[in-house]
Design a protein around this nucleic acid. Structure first.
Lengths: 207, 207
DNA sequence: CTGCTTCATTAACCTAGGTTAAGAGATCCG
DNA sequence: CGGATCTCTTAACCTAGGTTAATGAAGCAG
C-alpha cells in the first residue's frame, strides 16, 4: 500500500457513506480488505472468458469494457471513469467467467475488493447487504436505461445521451470507441458530429 | 382475498424460499402484506408517466410492458409471464413516475406487495434485504444481457434469443409484439421466420 | 352465413447507417 | 528532420431492415 492509497480510501469512504451508514468497526473491517492496483495505459484489467474475483473502483484513470467476437473485433460495452466501479458483475454473481474484458485508456489506479470479501461483509452486518442491494439497484437502472436507448433511439439521439453522461470526459475517449459504445461505425459518428440535424434550434455556443 | 389466493401464496412462498431462507414469523408478516389483483385482457396495470407503488407477481396470465412515444406509438419493453415480477422497478427505487406502461395480453391474476411494505420488510429482517439484493442482481443480469443483444446481434439472432427465453409462450404472444420487443418491424420478423438463413444446418424438425 | 376487424404475409420501394478507401492532421520515434 | 502510425474526415457505394400497400386467413358479432 503506497502513500497515495490513503487519499483513495478516504474518498471511497465518503462516497460509500452517502449510500448507507457504516459503523466504525465495520468500516475498519472493510478497509482492511482493500487492495490496490496500478495499471499502465493499454493494460488489460480482466479478460473475457476468464474468471475474475475483484471489484475495482477507479480512483484515477479511465477504462473501457468490451466484448470480443469470434473474429477478434472489439465492441465497447461501457466506459469506467473516476469514482465508478468496474468489474464483471454478472459473472461474479453467477460465479462464471466474464463475458467481457476491461482495458485501460490511461494509466489507472484502482482500489479493489475481492468478491469473496464482499460476501463475508454481507454475512457480517446488514449495512453491507444494503450497500450491495443499492449498488445492484443502481447498476440495474443504468443497464435498463441503456437498453431503452438502443431499442428506441436512433444513432444521433444515442450520441446525445452519451455526451450527457460522459461530456466531461469526451476529449479523453477516442471517437471510434465512442462510436462502438453507442453501436454505430466511426464513419457515421463523424457524420453526426459534422452535421447534427437541429432538433431544438439550439442557441449559439457561448464564447 | 378469494380462494384462489391460497395456492398463489403457496407457490410464491416456495419460489422465494429458493432464494433465501425466510423465518416463519417473517413469512407471516410478509403474507399479511400481500394483496391481489384480477385484470381483464387488454387492461392496463400501470401507466407511463404515473406513480405506482406496487410490485406484482404474475400468478396466471400474461402482460407486456411498453414505452409510449410522443406520437402514441407503443414499443414493447418486455414480456411478463407466470412466475415473474412486473413493476416499474427503477421508478419505485427512485420514487418517480414510471417510464413505461404494462398491459394484459390475457386475463391475469397477480399477487402484489406495496413497495412501502417492502421497505418495511427491509427494516425488519436481513433476509428481506438479501432477497431485495438478489432480485436486483437478477434484474441487472437480465437487462445487461438484453443490452448486449441490442448492441451486438442482428435482427435474426435477437429473434433466436427471444425464442430461447419465451419459446414456451410463443403462441400466446402476437407476432407484431415480438417484433417490437426485439426492435424490428413486424414485416421484417415475418421475413425472418419465413427464410431463416441456416447458420448451423439444423436437423429436420422431428415429427 | 356474412361482414368486420385483426393479424400475418408478400412485394416494391426507400433510408439509416455500414463499408471501403483515400486523404489529412497529429503524434511519435529514429 | 523524415517517415511510421493513429485517428478523424469525406466521398462513393452498398445492405439490413423500414415503410407502404395489397392480399389472405382467422376470429367474432350479428
Amino acid at each position: 500500500m503506497d502513500i497515495s492509497s490513503f487519499g483513495a480510501i478516504e474518498s471511497l469512504r465518503s462516497s460509500l457513506a452517502k449510500v448507507v451508514a457504516i459503523p466504525p468497526t465495520e468500516w475498519l473491517a472493510f478497509a482492511r480488505m482493500l487492495k490496490f492496483r496500478k495499471l499502465r495505459k493499454g493494460e488489460v484489467y480482466f479478460r473475457q472468458g476468464e474468471r475474475f474475483d475483484e471489484i475495482g473502483f477507479v480512483v484515477r484513470g479511465l477504462l473501457y469494457t468490451y466484448y470480443l467476437d469470434a473474429s477478434g473485433i472489439e465492441t465497447v460495452k461501457y466506459i469506467a471513469t473516476e469514482g465508478t466501479p468496474v468489474c464483471p458483475y454478472a459473472a461474479l454473481i453467477q460465479n462464471r467467467p466474464s463475458h467481457f474484458s476491461a482495458k485501460c485508456l490511461e494509466p489507472t489506479f484502482l482500489v479493489v475488493l475481492r468478491y469473496d470479501d464482499l460476501l463475508k461483509l454481507y454475512r457480517r452486518h446488514v449495512c453491507w447487504v444494503n450497500m450491495g442491494r443499492i449498488f445492484a439497484e443502481r447498476l440495474f437502472i443504468l443497464r435498463e436505461e441503456r437498453e431503452r436507448q438502443f431499442q428506441t433511439l436512433d444513432a444521433e439521439a444515442r450520441y446525445q445521451c452519451f455526451v450527457e453522461v460522459f461530456g466531461k470526459h469526451l476529449e479523453r475517449i477516442p471517437q471510434y470507441l465512442i462510436a462502438s459504445c453507442i453501436g454505430i461505425s466511426p464513419v457515421h459518428l463523424s457524420r453526426i458530429r459534422q452535421a447534427p440535424k437541429e432538433s431544438t434550434p439550439h442557441p449559439q455556443p457561448r464564447l
